[in-house]
């Protein structure tokens, strides 16, 4: 997966969990969980969706890497390489 696709996938996954979230306004290094007021249930859904779409099994231990758009995209790129 290239980085652009990965970023898109992260954005789409967030949007599907938080309908109406202004994902376009997120900067690559914003902590989106705080920015979008996501609670742990929202975040779990996000991980679930991202895992489903990318085909990557995401462990609890991986989740600290999923705090920003760019961090999440890097994670996806690294795992699918």
């Amino acid at each position: 997966m290239n980085r652009t696709d990965a970023l898109d996938m992260v954005r789409e996954s967030i949007s599907s969990v938080i309908p109406g979230a202004d994902v376009a306004a997120l900067a690559p290094d914003d902590a989106f969980r705080e920015a979008l007021d996501m609670d742990s249930l929202d975040f779990l859904s996000f991980v679930e969706v991202l895992s489903e779409r990318s085909g990557i099994r995401i462990e609890d231990e991986d989740t600290p890497r999923l705090t920003t758009l760019s961090g999440s995209a890097d994670f996806l790129v690294a795992r699918t390489r």
Binding site: S15, S16, P19, G20, E48, V49, E52
Partner: peptide, 13 residues
């Protein structure tokens, strides 16, 4: 479920 395409923003929050 959440993997469905996001509904339009107008139907949301």
């Amino acid at each position: 479920g959440p993997s469905a395409p996001a509904p339009p923003a107008s139907a949301a929050p």
